[in-house]
Simulated assay, not measured.
Amino acid sequence: MKGQEWYQADAVAEEYDTKRFSRGGRLIDEREKQAVIDAVAPVEGKRVLEIACGTGRFTVMLAERGADITGIDISAAMLQQGRERAHRTGVADHLQFIRGDAARLPFPDDHFDSVFAMRFFHLADTPASFLSEMCRVSRDQVFFDTFNSVSLRTVYNWLLPMGSRLYSESEVLRLLHGAGLRLDDESHDFVLPYGFYRAIPNDVARRFRDLDVSLGDSPAGALASVSYWDARVE
């Protein structure tokens, strides 16, 4: 994985949410959470695994909604932030955080109803192996997002500390087929890339977000920087 040492640093974990989801980044947080809820619903009682759960944004959110959820991440520092979040929201007894490697998931086959990963595949050096593991431990659903190779994200990708792996739709479809997954649904968003939103105040960002959504419904939507992929185990 790209940037493993950077990602596991205490200072990075402590500032991760603040740097990415303050200012206009709040809109990104809202959209990503809605994407996960829409994909996994109905949530209550469902056994769910989050890959690369980080600070527990989604793990805690789904626990609050009644999911039987486990979050796995390679970073002890990130997991500590997640545990603190779970305690603050009163769901620490309703979820599990595990330190582990997404390439070798410590679960039996077909153990979860749904397995998902957000903000993960752009760092994956061997995406096929990760996706195969996600498929192995899921009996039904695999959900994840990617950053797109034909998008405005390419303009600033080289400025990022670790860069990002960018995917075409055809590559994602090949990966799904190779993992034994069938694409059930897809959606594409954020013609204006994440970095733009994080650079401006939230009230200004909301006006641009309205424009962004409109662009998504036009031919310019083909330049969306983010895609959400909802697949089923074949």
Rank of each mutant, 00 (worst) to 15 (best):
A13I: 05
M134L: 01
F21Y: 14
P106I: 00
G178C: 03
G25K: 02
E234A: 04
I74Q: 04
D230S: 11
V115N: 05
K46L: 11
Y7I: 08
V172L: 00
W229F: 07
D29P: 01
E133M: 02
W158E: 13
R31I: 12
D184L: 13
V36K: 00
A231C: 11
N202S: 14
D73W: 03
K46N: 05
G54S: 06
T18R: 05
Q80V: 15
F130H: 13
L95S: 09
A67K: 02
Q4P: 13
Q4A: 12
T154N: 13
Y7T: 06
P161V: 00
G24A: 00
C135E: 11
L215M: 14
V226K: 09
T126Y: 04
W229G: 01
A76Q: 14
D210S: 11
V12A: 02
F208I: 07
G221Y: 09
V137S: 03
P127H: 00
R209M: 13
D189W: 07
A124Q: 05
G71N: 02
R85Q: 08
H122K: 04
V233E: 02
M118D: 01
F130W: 14
E171A: 11
L123H: 14
A76L: 14
D29S: 08
G90H: 06
S170K: 13
A13Q: 05
V155M: 12
A231Q: 04
W6S: 11
A63G: 08
N202R: 08
T154V: 15
S22Q: 13
G56Q: 06
T70M: 06
S149V: 13
F112G: 00
G100E: 05
D113S: 00
V60R: 00
I200M: 10
H122T: 07
V226M: 11
I200V: 15
G221S: 08
G216E: 15
D185I: 04
D140C: 14
A128D: 15
L211D: 12
R99G: 11
R165T: 12
T70D: 09
T18A: 05
Q80W: 13
F190S: 06
L211G: 06
E171P: 05
Y156V: 12
E234C: 04
Y228G: 02
G216S: 15
P201W: 07
D217E: 14
D217Q: 14
V115F: 04
M61E: 15
V91R: 01
R139Q: 10
G71C: 02
A179F: 03
G180D: 08
L27I: 14
E234G: 09
T18V: 05
S225H: 10
A128P: 15
Y167W: 10
G180W: 01
A52M: 07
D210P: 06
I69S: 02
H111T: 10
G216L: 15
Q34S: 11
K33P: 09
I51F: 01
L183R: 11
S218E: 02
D125W: 00
T154H: 10
S151I: 12
G3F: 02
L159P: 11
P161Q: 00
D68V: 08
F143M: 08
A41Q: 12
D109H: 10
Q34H: 11
A13Y: 07
A205K: 09
E50V: 10
F144Y: 07
T59L: 09
E44N: 13
S227E: 08
R206F: 08
